[in-house]
Write a protein that binds this DNA or RNA. Sequence first.
RNA 1: GCCGAAGUGGUGGAACUGGUAGACACGCCAUCUUGAGGGGGUGGUGAGGAAACUCGUGCCGGUUCAAGUCCGGCCUUCGGCACCA
Length: 807
Amino acid sequence: MAKYDPKAVEAKWRDRWEKEGTCKVDLDAAERPFYNLMMFPYPSAEGLHVGNVFAFVGSDIQGRYRRLQGYDVFEPLGFDAFGMHSENFALKQGRHPAEMVPKNIEHFRENQLKRIGLMVDWSRQVDTTVPEYYRWTQWMFVTLLRHGFAYRAQGQVNWCPGCKTVLAKEQVIDDECERCQSKVEKRDMEQWYFRTTAFKDELLDELDRLDWSERTKTAQRQWIGRSSGADVTFRVEGGPELKVFTTRPDTLFGATYMVVSPEHPVLDEITAPERREALAEYRRRAAAISEAERQDEKREKTGVFTGAHAVNPVNGARIPVWAADYVLMGYGTGAIMAVPAHDSRDHEFARKFDLPIIQVVTAPPEAPDVADEAWTGEGALMNSGPFDGLEAKSEGIPRIVEKLAGEGKAEFRTLYRLRDWCVSRQRYWGPPIPVIYCPKCGTVPVPEKDLPVLLPYIEDFKPDGSGRSPLRRHAEFYNTSCPSCGEAATRETDVSDNFLCSAWYFYRYPSTEFGDRPFDAARTRKWLPVDLYVGGNEHAVLHLLYSRWLCRALHSAGLLDFAEPYKRFVAHGIIVKDGSKMSKSRGNIVNPDDYVGAYGADAFRVYLMFMGAYLEGGDFRDGGVKAMKGFLDRLYAAASPEAGPLSVSEPEGAETLFWLNSAVKAVGNDIERFSYNTAIARIMELVNHITKHKIRNRSISATLAVLISPFAPHLAEELWESLGNSGSVFDSRWPSYDEEKIRRPEVEYVVQVNGKVRDKINLAAGLTPEEIDPLVLASPVALKWIEGKEIVRKIYVPDKLINLVVK
RNA sequence: GCCGAAGUGGUGGAACUGGUAGACACGCCAUCUUGAGGGGGUGGUGAGGAAACUCGUGCCGGUUCAAGUCCGGCCUUCGGCACCA
């Protein structure tokens, strides 16, 4: 049996593709451009992760399939190598990132990525750490600054004590640093921000029209977190006004007390003299506990009465004002009206401190009493004076807010969870923020002609936790002159978050040869937005949100003529090993090199895609790759002339034509819906059929070569060549199929009696119910079940099933 | 707590608009080939039952001639949000 030797075959085609530029596309001459983008990897020193391979191969299949459909496919790849990920690893290894990163990239590309058979045009590689690239990352910063999308501000930030830098809110996961898992602390510092909130509504609303995986859109929606409600102004007796934000202004009549965050300055003004001591003590305790502890929901509610009372604007009721740490200073107005009957947190607090509970929305009879549990569902207003009987949310909210608004005591307001993007990092390995501080001119962006601001090579790049970048310790970098007045000035020493590097990399790929602009206008018009973006959902609120925002900012600055960077985004699944997540501590890491080395890239690719549904991930089993190599051997032996002569006549025989045509149809459909595992199964069926019946036919072999080519490109090329073709299989076309051949002349009918399968009979296809009836009634098995009963109904499903309903 | 997604043989997983549950594979069993090992061929493989049949897609109920698929209620797992008012 003619087995193919993956080592030799794959090396041969790797070389030939490179020599003949098979994976290149003429960007200017392309007639049907298709930009097939995959998330570029971080080139870790540990090497390529099997999850990377899974992601890339799934994307590569789309690229190769589109090409076979006649598109001019551009499939670039690069490296995201700036940032803390690289720097932290270098620190751990006692190496310098400037020395380590290029080596990692080299190894990644030459020994790993190029071995897995991606249709990547490596002449357009992007590396975020080289000056030719980060010059334009800095240009982005300056451009954003010029257009009012970047600003510097003092405020509360997330500080990672492990990485010794501030982080964006998006990089804090459950109060931990996403990089090093240290508990993040709150600090008050001056930092650079990007105005992501400038496009909060557009970023949210446009999601409804984007062709993206639903789970990615859901994550972004929740992150932006729009909630509509109203500000309502209460008056403190003998004191100032106190504004609260509420999403339930319909429940105003049920407000029985107010709560102010312990940090709220109004407390200094309103707290009764005899209560000051208790308040101070409470504030001390609140400050002492961590944010995480404070937000732990299971924690019992605490609070202290201020001695002050406020007046409910809707009915003049006099209600006490409390200070409690379940109200956060950072959201809304830092103060709330408490409606214990209809909010579970207020309810818990009211129960603890014995505050009144007044029901103002009707609850269904089976609901628990509001004395025991808050009712947060729908209902009609009650105990609400003139508003009684209105449907609470839909009618009560507008009516009550409008009435108060007339008196200047309320206004509709929408709040968002999204915060501006904190982009400065007190670290070394990143693009320096291109800003100069001049005592005379103030904050001056580095002029475009002076870019890039080169990251100097320094030996002591270790972060020191001072709140300043290590670059600050280097006078020759720090001291400079002002670009506008020429006087002595100093540089910003923080570097940008590396998510800025990755927010624009896909504009660069089609324009890598242009040294004088970040992206060429004509190229960009032709190739962007990206046609298909495949990647992991872990970037839903990081990279994917930042890059959407940057696109909008550049669009509003007139630099792009589109506002969304990706026409389609598909989130792939996650691979696990033997049912659990791969991790070093479990010792179940899969090293792609081992499998590629032993069985070849094609077998590894096909197995990864066969393991499970691409959009859901799969479970990696050790024996799988070997078994897949066996399948590829069988396919090659069945299809290649090396194993014996092939007939050159047209394929014949209804069964063979059926399997052939249905495979062509199904594989195409399955690739389009990312159902790679079933696509491969369909190819297996075809191979099983021709192997079993010893059918050897050149035309079928050619079809097989094309069908398997997106999955196993090297094998496909070898097979294609052995069939006497000269060019690449990827310059051929996806085969067509004949629907007629898929229709079978005789079909198996299921005979059901009362919905249970009782018999199966073979009948000619396309029979009418009248023709079927006598044939069904000739079935002895069916007769047995009908005997002595009356047929009350007959259901026919053409060419499939007949169900006899008997009594 | 809220919002997504998912629960199917020994295992990974199929099943498009309700219409033969378990495609395709792994594993296992039998058998042939081989001196053995490896490899390969053929057949079998959801459970119970001698069989006829019965049961079977997380659990309970419903709609329907017919439910893995639709509806209501629960349980579990994963992911997102979270004292966000």
